[in-house]
């Protein structure tokens, strides 16, 4: 594969990130590397700034200090306008889908195509339909408005929109929250499948320990305004009380117990 270079290529490089929210320091000189082709899970207690980290990377939040490079390009201090070359290369799934409420699901999926790719309408319709089945939505969902969908369906539709341009990098903000366990497992498979076939890099904020186990290569834990990065195996033995409890508490234990040896 000509496109697939050495595995150590860094897609997201965060250095010395400082974020403050209402006088509260969320991130204190945080460093993080995300490698091409990996699925990175980001976990942490409520209010530890998981979503803020995601928003900082895609340029929705201005950090107080630090540098964030995505595909080698600085995003800190830039507006959406300045990131026009990066936007087709990433897709973002927001917590509740963030679909445009005045448009049908199919039209929502076509928004990035219209903006960044010059395609005939017939092909866009085919692609919208394909993306719908990729995320497991029934075919008639394309005609519906977001307000007519359930929370779980909105999330899938949001994912379809995030994947519209086949980005190299996908940000998922709590993708399996609100899905039933079976759909969540399907979603995990889907992420993994796409990741493998497209060498997709996934930055995923999640609480779902099953998802972490099923999909992630590495896990970044936000605790005490810093970040601990490791695999499930190394983090289970981490001395930090929150991390320890997270991975060995009742829920964590059950999920890990079912893991293949």
């Amino acid at each position: 594969m000509a496109e697939r270079r050495d595995n150590e290529e860094i897609v997201i490089r965060v250095r010395g990130l400082v974020n403050q929210l209402g006088g509260n320091v969320l991130h204190d000189h945080l460093d993080l590397d995300v490698k091409r082709g990996e699925v990175l899970g980001v976990v942490g207690g409520s209010g530890t700034g998981k979503s803020v980290l995601l928003r900082s990377i895609v340029g929705l939040n201005r950090p107080k200090a630090g540098s964030i490079k995505v595909f080698g390009e600085e995003t800190v201090g830039k507006d959406a306008e300045d990131l026009h070359t990066l936007q087709p290369r990433w897709g973002v799934l927001f917590q509740d889908g963030a679909l445009f409420s005045s448009q049908t699901v199919a039209e929502n999926i076509q928004v990035p195509l219209r903006e960044h790719a010059d395609m005939p309408q017939s092909l866009m319709n085919e692609i919208a339909s394909m993306k719908l089945s990729m995320v497991g939505l029934p075919e008639d969902a394309g005609h519906k408005y977001p307000s007519q969908l359930s929370g779980g369906m909105r999330k899938r539709a949001g994912l379809a929109r995030a994947l519209a341009l086949d980005p190299e990098l996908v940000f998922l903000d709590e993708p399996t929250a609100g899905l039933d366990p079976i759909s969540a497992a399907h979603f995990d498979e889907l992420v993994r499948g796409l990741q493998e076939s497209l060498n997709l890099t996934v930055f995923m904020v999640t609480h779902d320990i099953d998802t972490l186990r099923a999909t992630t290569d590495r896990i970044a834990v936000l605790v005490d305004r810093k970040i601990h990065v490791g695999t499930i195996e190394t983090l289970v033995n981490d001395k930090h009380p929150w991390i320890h409890e997270y991975f060995t508490g009742v829920r964590g234990h059950a999920a890990l117990a079912s893991a293949p040896a």
Binding site: A106, S129, S133, M134, G136, H143
Partner: peptide, 13 residues
């Protein structure tokens, strides 16, 4: 995956 799951006709706007 696509071969198995995608059988729907294109959406019509």
């Amino acid at each position: 995956t696509m071969h198995e799951e995608h059988t729907a006709p294109p959406v019509v706007i």
